[in-house]
Simulated scan of single mutants.
Amino acid sequence: MKNKIKQLSILLFEKKGFTETSIQDIVESLGVTKGTFYYYFESKEQLLMDIHMSYIDQLLERQRAIRQEHHSSRMKLEQIIALLIADIANHGPSGKVFFREMRHLSEDNAVKVKKKREIFRKNLAEIISEGIAQKEFRDKLEPEMVAFAILGVTNWSYQWFNPSGKISADQLARIYSDLILNGIA
Rank of each mutant, 00 (worst) to 15 (best):
L8E: 09
G95D: 03
T19I: 07
D170H: 10
K115C: 11
T36Q: 13
S157D: 01
N3G: 00
R100A: 08
E126S: 14
Q7V: 08
F37V: 08
L60Q: 06
I23H: 05
A173H: 06
A86V: 00
E45M: 03
Q58M: 14
Q24G: 09
R138V: 14
A147R: 12
T21I: 03
H52Q: 15
D108A: 13
K140G: 06
R103L: 06
A125E: 08
D87W: 00
K116C: 10
S106A: 02
I88S: 07
I23D: 05
V146N: 01
S168E: 11
G152Y: 06
L151E: 09
I119R: 01
Q46T: 01
H70N: 06
E130C: 11
G183L: 13
R117N: 10
N123I: 03
K166L: 15
D50R: 02
V27P: 08
L77V: 13
E14G: 09
I56P: 11
Q159D: 08
I5N: 04
I127N: 03
S9A: 15
T36H: 00
T154C: 11
K15W: 02
H71S: 09
K114H: 05
W156Q: 02
L12W: 06
Y176A: 01
Q159Y: 01
S129Y: 11
M1H: 02
S9C: 02
I66V: 15
F161K: 06
E69F: 02
S73Y: 00
I184M: 12
